[in-house]
Structures are given as structure tokens and as C-alpha cells.
Amino acid sequence: MISQASNYRRRAIVDQIMRGMAILATIVALIPLFLIIGYVIVRGGSSFSIAFFTEAYRAPIALGDDIRSPGGVLHGIVGTILITGLATLIAMPVGIMAGIFLAEYPSNSVAMTVRFCTDVLSAAPSIIVGVVAYTLIVRTTGAFAGYIGSIALAVLMIPIITRTTEEILKLVPQTVREASMALGAPKWWRTLTVVLPAALGAIVTGVMLAFARAAGETAPLILTVLGNNNLSYNLMAPIAALPLLTYRYTEQPFPVLNDLAWGTALVLTLMVLLVNISVRVATRNRLR
């Protein structure tokens, strides 16, 4: 009896210690997150103004010792939406169809190869994708352009969309596929009418998360879209993008431009956050 009681006490203590460590680890993991978001909000928020959202770049003006920048980052917001939007248009059909292929024909050798390549690609550093895009497209065409950035971002998005789609389609119960099969539906019809609709919400989530990931990529854009100080809607020419502005303005000697860098960082963070939250709200009802 005595040994049983002490055994119980020992287990209770171990339980307390382990729980404490788990809570501590969670806090440690969350500290950088809150630090980053908080710091970006504090530093970036102060540079927000009407001109920040309605103006493109303007050269800093010196009034005595006071150096001011009357410009904003509208060109970056527009550029990021255009570049990432085009990238999504390219990556979405390719990624979803590849995901369908992997999920519906899982064990042939082509699928194995595709799955392996997808894994390698999703682990590839984005700068490498940028270098390849630079060498193959920028050097060949002889010009930097927004669409080349879109292609580079699409290459980064495709493996994410592919694997999300595959994983989600695998979760669609086999019994539902069998029901369709037993009704004499050909495989393509079954995939289109039963499997895809059941997984649609989750696939959209995957696409949006890939969009959010791509919107923050900087390295591939440096080598492909170059950047632009003026507001431009032309993806066939160099164009601005928020991560590029953050990178360039951080390097500048003028504190006003450093402040703009914080502002663009905050806009980018908010955009990604907005996409994430809207995806969660939109798909909440589907997750039963």
C-alpha cells in the first residue's frame, strides 16, 4: 500500500513537471511571433498616412535638418497583388491537377517521381528558383519583367498546392468513391463530381496559403522583376513589389525611408493575415 501511494505521488509530480515544461516551451515558441508582430505594428503603424496608401515613391525632401518623404508604397501594393495574382493563376491549375493525379493514381512510377520532385522543389531555397528564372528567362529575353517574377513564384507555389490537394483528396473517404464507382461512373466523372467537390474548401485553403507564402517571397523577385519607383500596372516591364520595397528601403541611409520599410512590412503582414483569416472564415462551415 505504501509503495502504491508513493508511486502515485511520483507520477503526479512527473505529470506536473512535464505539463510545466510543455507550457514553457509553448511560451518560448510564441515569444518571437508576438515580438515580430508587435514590433512591426509599432514601427510600421507610425509611418501609415493617407499618402502612404495613395502615392508611389517620391524622392525625400530636405527642409533643413528635417528630411521628409512625401511618397507612399501604392506601387508596391499594386505590384505585389498583380505579380502574386498572376502566379496564382499559373500555379493553381497545375498544382490542383498534379494533386489530383497523385491522389487518384498513387502507386504508379510516374506518380512516385512527381511526388519526389515536388518534395525536393518545396524544400528548394527560393533564391535558387530566382537564379534559374533569371538565367533562363531574364537573360534570354534580355529584360526584367513582372511576369517573370510571377513564373518564379508559381514554381514555389506549385509544390504547396500539389501536396495540399493530394493530402486533402486522400482524406475523401474511399467508400464515397466506391459509391460513385458502383453507380457506373467513369473515373474522371467520379473525380469531378464527387471527390473534388468534397475537398473544394480545403483546396481553396491550400491555394490561399500558397498565395500568402508567395506574397512574402523576396529573393526570386530581386532577380526577376527588379523593382520600379513608379506606379505601374504592366507585368511585361519591371514593377514594384512590397517585399522588394522593404528590402530596398531598409538599405537606404534616410530614416524616413527606413520608416517606409517598416510600413511596407506591416502592409505585407496584414495582407497575409487577412488572407489567412478570410480563408478560415470562408471554410469554417465546411470543416465538419
Binding site: A179, M181, L183, G184, A185, A198
Partner: peptide, 27 residues
């Protein structure tokens, strides 16, 4: 496929599609 169109099947666990009752039966 033609064979299965001549044979109906009901499974161990109910496996309706994530569609309306009408669309399930009309499938």
C-alpha cells in the same frame, strides 16, 4: 462500367455524397 450500370450496390456504412438528398439520388 456498363456492368455496374446494371447492378446497384448498397454499402456497409451509409456513404451519401456531400450533396443534397435530391442530387444523391439523381447521381
Amino acid at each position: 462500367i456498363m456492368l455496374r450500370r446494371r447492378i446497384g450496390m448498397v454499402f456497409q456504412r451509409p456513404n451519401p455524397f456531400a450533396k443534397s438528398i435530391f442530387d444523391n439520388v439523381a447521381y
